[in-house]
């Protein structure tokens, strides 16, 4: 880990009054979102509520039409320290045209650190650690196209972890992921949080990640509907429409088959 930057107490992500449009449709309509140092924040909401756009705005991939974004206390315009950020995009089924091994994909997460230098011993060790953390070290030489959805997601997470980021940003890390992989993911995330990382993640359901989450931000129609601690989310009397937004693991008996969902 790096030495904390000057002004170390600034939030790692600070999004204020964020507006964004996709095409002609306003998708974010004045969102405030703050992730403090060491905090784990989940973004929840129905499809089309703007949660993926909010995350992509937070990494500067969706331009804001108004509002402000600061990463580690620096306005996005001047932010260059991308090696502090680990990004896990929504898993796509579109494969690249040329095969790549698990280790090759994970190693590309190390580029922010080694830049133009060849991969050194420290870099290889970090890649190996990331692979072990998600339980994919045994598959390092396999082609990523031969993996299941859950395994592929674990590789994308390892790629982000290989850069030893201080902030992890994940878009739907549980989507299409089997239960065994969800637990591996929760363990990996717990490990990161324990070593001081901050996390912002988009979720459809909290699943095995629930105990890790400090704060949930529920979006609806491009606005923050409410901010809650995770246990408050599952009070249907208080928020009757929750059942369509989140599926509390406690409410629905789950059969843990370990099969692909």
């Amino acid at each position: 880990m790096d030495v904390p930057a000057p002004g170390g107490s600034a939030p790692v992500i600070s999004l204020r009054g964020a507006h964004a449009v996709l095409g002609a449709r306003p998708v974010l309509r004045g969102i405030d979102l703050t992730v403090g140092r060491g905090e784990v924040v989940a973004l929840l909401g129905a499809n089309g509520s703007g949660k993926s756009t909010a995350v992509r705005a937070a990494i500067g991939r969706v331009p804001l039409t108004s509002g402000e974004l600061e990463l580690f206390g620096t306005p996005l315009r001047r932010f260059r320290d991308w090696r502090r950020v680990g990004y896990v995009p929504q898993r796509s089924t579109a494969a690249a045209g040329v095969p790549a091994t698990v280790r090759e994909v994970v190693s590309s997460g190390r580029l922010a650190r080694h830049r133009l230098r060849p991969l050194g011993r420290t870099d290889r060790a970090a890649v190996q650690r990331a692979l072990e953390l998600v339980g994919m070290a045994g598959r390092a030489k396999d082609s990523v196209s031969a993996l299941s959805g859950g395994q592929h997601q674990r590789v994308l997470i390892a790629r982000a972890l290989a850069g030893e980021p201080e902030l992890l940003i994940m878009d739907e890390p549980l989507a299409g992921v089997d239960l065994a992989s969800q637990h591996v993911l929760a363990d990996a995330l717990r490990d990161q949080v324990a070593s001081g990382a901050s996390v912002l993640l988009v979720l459809h359901e909290l699943g095995p990640l629930a105990p890790l989450i400090d704060r949930s931000v529920v979006l609806r129609d491009g606005r923050v509907e409410r901010v809650a601690r995770p246990e408050q989310l599952h009070d249907p009397a208080c928020h009757p429409h929750d059942s369509e937004v989140v599926h509390p693991a406690s409410a629905v008996p789950r059969i843990e088959t370990g099969q692909l969902s």
């Binding site: 990494i59 991939r61 260059r80 320290d81 991308w82 090696r83 950020v85 990004y87 995009p89 690249a96 790549a100 090759e104 994909v105 190693s107 590309s108 997460g109 580029l111 922010a112 133009l116 991969l119 790629r159 850069g163 940003i169």
Partner: peptide
Amino acid sequence: RRQLFAVCQDEEFARVTGL
């Protein structure tokens, strides 16, 4: 090759890496 591999494999991820 590592930089070009990253860009051609996943352009969005490569951007967030600061490439």
